[in-house]
Nucleic acid binder design. Sequence first.
DNA 1: ATTCAGTGCAACCCTGGAGTTGCTCTTCTA
DNA 2: TAGAAGAGCAACTCCAGGGTTGCACTGAAT
Lengths: 105, 105
Amino acid sequence: MPTDLHPVFAALADDTRWRILQRLGRSPDSASGLAAEFTVSRQAIAKHLTVLERCGLVTSERVGREIRFSAAGSRLSAVGRAIDAVGAGWERRLSAIKEAAERDQ
Amino acid sequence: MPTDLHPVFAALADDTRWRILQRLGRSPDSASGLAAEFTVSRQAIAKHLTVLERCGLVTSERVGREIRFSAAGSRLSAVGRAIDAVGAGWERRLSAIKEAAERDQ
DNA sequence: ATTCAGTGCAACCCTGGAGTTGCTCTTCTA
DNA sequence: TAGAAGAGCAACTCCAGGGTTGCACTGAAT
């Protein structure tokens, strides 16, 4: 999976989802556990978790009758580096265009 | 401005906006110029450009009666590195927790 | 001075998705 | 073997925001 960025951006765009992810970056927890700390319902949390898991930002592990989620920090790092690379590419190309324009002028 | 990520995520989440930004990463252009290449109206493009500019992903420069926009690659790179750092932090903390759990058990 | 290209503003429509409620199913535990 | 705690499913509400149309304004060019 060569890091398609669109679903990741969409996942990170929602504020509640981003807060959930940050929370899971501190320590793993279940949907019910998270629901106790947030102001939204457990079902809402569960939806967010499926979105996050679908694009690899969260991993899950069954423990008895509960499902423990944790943030996939390495995945987020990989996304960050991919974004960095894209930006660097634009910077290179645009400065080359600018230089060329100044030379011709 | 210490790189507040939320507005950037929101800006990048929309597909049309992301495509516009990628397009501007190839070469600068005006809202009208972009509208000729995309399937959406110039006004829609203009809205996207204000969103992108508001969070620093795009810069503008007035040239006669037109406004030329270009992608701020360096800004995107900075965002990418910030994201990388966040992910790395989570990774560190969570692996520490995991190790501690295995030791106790 | 008139026309045309580019921009700005405002009002409007409409869909995606965040959130809720209500119910069922499963799995520990007392 | 109840009962409680955690999870899953489905239907529903609601609104932010992406997209549109229509018109007014401004600078260039002929």
